[in-house]
Design a protein around this nucleic acid. Structure first.
Lengths: 193, 193
DNA sequence: TCAGGTTTGGAACGATCGTTCCAAATGAAC
DNA sequence: GTTCATTTGGAACGATCGTTCCAAACCTGA
């Protein structure tokens, strides 16, 4: 196979992303990635660069999908109040595709790498700001439509929802109890009135 | 020094704990621990066992201190409402001793190891349940004293505060902005009425 | 003062880490 | 069919990982 690769670049990056997502950066070896993607060492290095570059590409892919496949679609398909709930449910419920819930890749990375890697920190912080802005916009829209309490401070409440969402992503990995996670979601929704 | 060690066992464990806390388990090598504690390899192994045992001892030490030096003291020194705020501030403000804020060791560990290590998961989940129970008790006491809104469901609100606290611990490492962290604390306190 | 058992420090182990390198395989272009 | 740029698979690199081991240093009890 000379003039074109024998593997799908995006599909392989997706498998690498799932591996990093589930195991973290340090706990994932290049050998793990070779086995999970089915692509050889040399090809991985030639295509994506070294381990850190591959991780950054995976993180950006996750970030892009969160923006395009989650926030955008949810905003288009639901009223503001339900849109917020849908985002929460995404992180509290088991992924129907993989059958497991690895929480949030951004949140996992925020704790493991953000304090020690400026490039990672920038991507993570930007993703968190985007979610915060999404919540704020939904709250403002909901207030305008009358489905969310008008007295709320949109900015402060959005920050609170962001923290709650992150908390859910963590609890999902340490206490995957349906009652607990649903309870946190309901408590968060109740703040919206 | 034959019949007694030349280093303080608890003090050395404290230094190891701070290293694991700041860097995580995988990113911390035994060589790091030797340098940070000033204790030699052989002594660390003879005293604490292997790396995982040392980590578990450090995690238990953190858990014990959170129970004895944070929750217990805060509960004794403040009214229920302020006690909740004090716990939040502990995780959102820079530690005056170390000069940095590494977030919450339990939360860091919840993401990195809890899904893949049953012993770690048990310690982490128990610590989280203890904080949740603390919040619930403070809410019930505050309701009885009239400083917290009587209409609140103590159990559900406590779960919400736990998630918010975890969110703060994560944001501290990825977006250490005073306005953001204070805002989340204020939003959480506002729920108590 | 001497003997005994414990701690200590550092050398050394095999395994695995991330990374590099290269001969073999490949299929489009001529 | 020949040529050739490119990919491929796996061997191999040095570094570092967690861990083990042991001679030397040491203080306590006799």
């Amino acid at each position: 196979m000379p003039w074109q690769k024998t593997f799908d670049v995006a599909e392989t990056l997706d498998k690498a992303m799932q591996t990093f997502w589930a195991q973290g950066y340090e706990a994932t070896s290049m050998q793990d990635l070779v086995e999970r993607t089915g692509v050889n060492r040399g090809s991985l290095y030639a295509t994506y660069g070294d381990k850190r570059a591959l991780f950054l590409a995976a993180l950006r892919m996750y970030d892009d999908r969160m923006r395009d496949n989650l926030l955008r679609r949810v905003e288009a398909a639901h009223d503001p109040r339900d849109a917020v709930r849908q985002v929460f449910l995404r992180f509290s419920e088991v992924n129907p595709e993989s059958g497991v819930n690895c929480g949030c890749f951004i949140t996992n990375t925020a704790l493991e790498l953000a304090p020690h890697d400026a490039d990672v920190c920038r991507i993570v912080a930007q993703a968190q700001r985007r979610i915060e802005a999404f919540f704020r916009r939904m709250i403002e829209d909901g207030k305008a439509q009358g489905t969310i309490t008008a007295e709320l401070d949109a900015g402060e409440t959005a920050r609170g929802l962001l923290a709650s969402m992150i908390g859910i992503a963590v609890l999902t990995r340490s206490r995957p109890e349906r009652d607990l996670l649903n309870g946190v979601v309901e408590e968060a929704m109740r703040r919206l009135g």
